[in-house]
């Protein structure tokens, strides 16, 4: 069992800088993923993620352990990405009113089962990339990191109910995007029957 984050934080505060490399290795994938969901470009996401870890290191004395170290880190990543977009004068995507809200889950699942693992991953990645930045972050935090609505609300500085509504809408939107992406295969599947 790996040692808890607090152990490494204590080591760092006692002057052991190398202990920080364990925390970087532990969270770099999630921090990078969150930054990439926000800024959509790999080079920029890498730069932001590095800044996040440097900022977290210099501000480690303000971490009081009231929340998990990971959520504290994700909060920094989220706000760094927002600040970056603001600096670049790039605004977040706004919600569009979609006329297409229909999807048939069994059809999507059937087609997904016929795809190769690599292709399946690609389809899902592409669909998530089409989501609004903040929705992609909510989806990742909830489904991959399995954070609670309250924890996500803390990271994004939102009300838990707002996160709940956003998650519900993002889920539906993602299902529609998957359906649209897999439309030819779904039709082909129906044709075979």
């Amino acid at each position: 069992m790996s040692l808890k984050d607090q152990h490494y934080i204590d080591c760092i505060q006692q002057g052991d800088t190398n202990a920080y490399s364990v925390l970087i290795d532990r969270y770099k994938y999630m921090v990078f993923t969150l930054a990439l969901k926000m800024v959509k470009r790999r080079e920029e996401a890498e730069e932001i993620s590095q800044d996040v870890f440097v900022k977290a290191y210099t501000a480690l004395n303000t971490f009081k352990g009231e929340s998990k170290f990971s959520t504290w880190l994700y909060k920094i990543a989220y706000y760094r990405s927002l600040d970056y977009l603001k600096k670049q004068k790039r605004s977040l995507q706004t919600h569009t009113i979609d006329s297409d809200t229909e999807y048939h889950l069994p059809a999507i699942e059937n087609v997904m089962d016929t795809l190769e693992l690599k292709e399946r991953k690609k389809v899902i990645q592409e669909a998530i990339a089409l989501l609004k930045e903040e929705d992609a972050v909510v989806i990742t935090l909830h489904y991959f990191e399995e954070l609670t609505l309250k924890e996500i609300a803390g990271i994004m500085n939102l009300d838990a109910n707002t996160v709940k509504v956003r998650l519900y809408r993002s889920r539906k939107r993602l299902a529609v995007l998957l359906k649209n992406r897999l439309e030819p295969e779904i039709l082909e599947n129906y044709g075979r029957r």
Partner: peptide
């Protein structure tokens, strides 16, 4: 989402941060 996994940063990420 679990199947897709997380994105990978560059291999020297940790060294660059340190």
């Amino acid at each position: 989402v679990k199947m897709v996994g997380l994105e990978k940063p560059s291999s020297d990420f940790t060294q660059v941060v340190l």
